[in-house]
Amino acid sequence: MTDYLNSDAIRQLLNRSAGQLDPSTLAGLRQAREQALLRHAPVGAGSQTRWHFGAWRPAAATWVATLLLAVCLFGGITYYWQQTRDSSEIDLAILTDEMPVDVYVN
């Protein structure tokens, strides 16, 4: 036999076979499918009272990490410029003060 089955042919065969199953087998398969779907339900869909940290998707953790990094970065940059601005303001006051600078240095 030289004919190979492609994916469409396989799907058609499976559909045809499923149509020939007896009702009790179909009911069993449907129940198994529903149970499998329930086990993989999104966090919070079944119970809203508990956190399921273990069920966090990696993508969500990546987003949170990126967001935290961005917040830290922004905070750090803001703090740095604020410090620079503060010191330059006091320095300008010293440099324009009536008192000579060496009074404060020595």
Binding site: I90, D91, I94, L95, D97, V101, Y104, V105
Partner: peptide
């Protein structure tokens, strides 16, 4: 001022604030 060390400038700031 530009030739002072960072420590000397910091000292000047502290003294200025105290004064």
């Amino acid at each position: 001022w530009s030739k002072l060390t960072p420590e000397q400038r910091e000292q000047a700031r502290q003294k200025y604030k105290a004064f």
